[in-house]
Design a protein around this nucleic acid. Structure first.
Lengths: 233, 233
DNA sequence: GCCTATCTGACAGCATTATGACAAAACAGG
DNA sequence: CCTGTTTTGTCATAATGCTGTCAGATAGGC
């Protein structure tokens, strides 16, 4: 089951954009299109992508600005610059801003497709670590991800599938803030967008299971505007 | 605790090789040198590297061959081709063989160093040796952008999202003045214009967190009429 | 069709962020 | 140096918008 990879294409020349989109779609990617910098940032905030193809000369904000802005929030997503400028200077500026690579127009289509594929593959590895522990000791409680149960002095609690997934994700990222977007992507999948309240409900459940005081949680911390963070004790 | 990264340089022109090695060593890398394809493969088998810099036109086996063979055994190690040939064809051939990137001679030295650093960082992530690079040591305080915390002797401070963004921006532009406009654009967004006092409030908070004397700040300097500048120490 | 799991929408409460007032400092020009 | 003007530091308070919470709706498996 290979997922569909999502690419954000930021390019103001409509004709060129159409060519690129067509070719990427032929390769099986889903292409989302933004025609200027502001639109690109908006889309980046709202949706998840596996790769950003970013022209440098675009209306409202340069590609460089867009890239720097994105890098403040997300270090991992691969960014590939497209540009007509091709001096060492320009390429260096792009890379400095946080891009992974730089392709000059006019470009060889096959080269573009190859780079896209390489970068997406890389992105998957950097974000998709699959660690495989299947149980976890939390204080005097014992979480078993094989049987989906929490065991404590008072007995057992059956976790549901989604509960188990989310709990495991948070524990894997112990001590790191996991953004709501990342949670949605990893637990719910790419094209599903349940209301943001849904996540809270699960956290609520966890706090109940582990008998936390929500005003001053020990394990499941909310980080306003971002997501949640699990810490152990 | 930053490890020394090892680079395998495969290049038959001794003079060029020497220039590259010198520059990489200045950046703190350890460079191991091979002058032909067979030697390169042998070294690859015997030692461990973080990156391979591979010229295409080398004696005994081409760079392409070397790359393909390496890829049979190892999918992850970053490979960067160096070559005088610069047609789309050639680059495509290199990427197809399994390289991550392709740089044409004569190249901009800074570009080479940037690409090297990008590829090594990626390699570390894919092999799971480092989860991310999101922290900063400031005196005896430790800023962690994964957890959004500052840790010092007295305990931890939770940063908010905006605080973290602004702090990161200033630290990234260490020793440079960041104008208020740039701050507004990058941290608040292109279409939001909070009163100018707002930024000061955040700086105020930082100075409190890092126990600065506002009359004579060590870290967060105000540059009258322009913006703020972060310096370390 | 029933039962459980999951989702939605409403609302309260509150943390974060923004504002406005004023003091203090920096600067420019005489 | 002095003075008027502008910018920044500081704080109390207001506005905003996110999260906690829950009841009821919906979906999906059997």
């Amino acid at each position: 089951m290979s997922a569909i990879y999502r690419i954000l294409l930021v390019e103001d020349e409509e004709h060129l954009a159409e060519v690129i989109r067509l070719n990427l779609e032929l390769e099986g990617y889903k292409v989302i299109y933004a025609r200027d910098g502001v639109e690109a940032l908006k889309m980046f905030k709202e949706e998840r992508f596996n790769l950003i193809l970013l022209d440098i000369m675009i209306p409202r904000l340069t590609g460089i600005d867009v890239c720097e802005r994105i890098r403040l929030e997300n270090e991992d997503i691969p960014i590939l610059f497209l540009s007509a400028k091709n001096t060492g200077e320009d390429r260096v500026r792009g890379l400095r801003a946080g891009a992974h690579d730089y392709l000059t127009k006019p470009f060889n289509l096959e080269e573009l497709l190859l780079k896209v594929s390489i970068l997406i593959k890389m992105g998957l590895k950097t974000t998709g670590e699959i660690s495989s522990f299947n149980n976890y000791q939390l204080g005097d409680q014992f979480i078993d991800f094989d049987t989906y149960t929490i065991t404590n002095q008072e007995g057992q609690i059956q976790l549901t599938k989604k509960e188990a997934l989310l709990l495991k994700l948070l524990i894997e990222k112990k001590n790191q803030v996991v953004s709501r977007e990342e949670i949605l992507e990893k637990v719910w999948g790419y094209d599903v967008f349940p209301s943001t309240r849904t996540i809270d409900n699960f956290i609520l459940a966890f706090r109940k299971y582990f008998k936390e005081n929500p005003r001053d949680p020990r394990y499941f911390h909310s980080v306003r505007g971002v997501g949640y963070k699990f810490t152990d004790g």
